[in-house]
Computed example of a mutant assay.
Amino acid sequence: MYGAILRPSNELVECGEAHVGVLHATIALGRFLVDIHDPDIFPRRRERVVDSASQTVEVNLHAPCGIVRLTVPVVVTEKEAKSDPSRPVSFLSPPAYATAINHPVYGGTYYVLVDVRELGFAQGLRDVDFDRVTPVLKTLKGYLNSHPDFPTACRHPSGMPLAYPYSVMVVDTEVGGQPDDVEGAETGLCFFADDQIDRSLTGSCVVARMALAYAKGERRHGQRWACNSLVSNHFSSGAFVEEIVGTAGDAVTVRVEGSAYNKGTSSFIVEEGDVAGHGGFTMKNPRTPAVPGRFTFRS
Rank of each mutant, 00 (worst) to 15 (best):
R7K: 14
V13I: 12
E14Y: 12
C15H: 10
C15Y: 11
E17D: 11
H19L: 09
V20M: 04
H24D: 13
H24F: 09
T26M: 07
I27A: 02
G30H: 03
G30P: 08
F32P: 00
V34I: 06
H37E: 14
D40Y: 14
R45C: 09
R45L: 05
R45G: 13
R46N: 10
E47Q: 13
V49M: 10
V50F: 07
S54W: 02
Q55M: 11
T56N: 01
V57C: 05
E58G: 07
V59H: 01
V59F: 00
V59Y: 00
N60C: 09
C65P: 05
I67F: 05
P73A: 08
E80W: 08
A81S: 06
K82R: 15
S86Y: 09
V89M: 07
V89R: 02
S90M: 05
S90A: 08
S93G: 02
P95N: 02
A100W: 05
H103Y: 03
V105M: 15
Y106L: 13
G108F: 12
T109Q: 14
V112R: 04
V112A: 07
L113Y: 01
V114A: 04
V114W: 10
G124M: 04
V128F: 10
V128H: 09
D131Y: 10
L137W: 00
L140I: 07
K141E: 12
F150S: 09
A153V: 07
C154A: 15
C154S: 14
H156W: 09
G159L: 12
A163P: 10
A163T: 08
Y164K: 15
S167I: 01
M169H: 02
M169R: 01
V171Q: 05
D172S: 11
D172I: 03
T173D: 12
G176A: 02
D180S: 12
D181R: 02
D181E: 15
E183N: 13
G184K: 00
E186T: 04
T187V: 06
T187F: 03
F192C: 02
I197N: 03
D198F: 03
R199E: 03
S200L: 04
S200M: 07
S200K: 00
L201I: 02
T202L: 00
T202H: 03
V207S: 05
V207D: 08
A208K: 05
R209W: 02
R209T: 01
M210F: 04
L212P: 00
A213K: 14
A213N: 06
Y214A: 06
A215T: 01
G217V: 12
E218L: 12
R220S: 13
R224K: 15
A226Y: 01
S232R: 00
N233R: 03
S236A: 15
S236D: 15
S237N: 14
A239Y: 03
V241Q: 10
V241K: 07
E243K: 14
I244H: 09
I244P: 07
V245M: 11
V245T: 12
T247A: 05
G249T: 03
V252I: 05
V256M: 05
G258T: 06
A260C: 09
N262V: 13
G264Y: 13
T265E: 11
S267G: 10
E271A: 15
E271D: 12
E272Q: 14
A276C: 11
G277V: 06
H278Y: 15
G280R: 07
N285T: 13
N285A: 13
P286Y: 02
G293E: 13
F297S: 04
R298T: 12
R298Y: 11
S299T: 13
S299L: 03
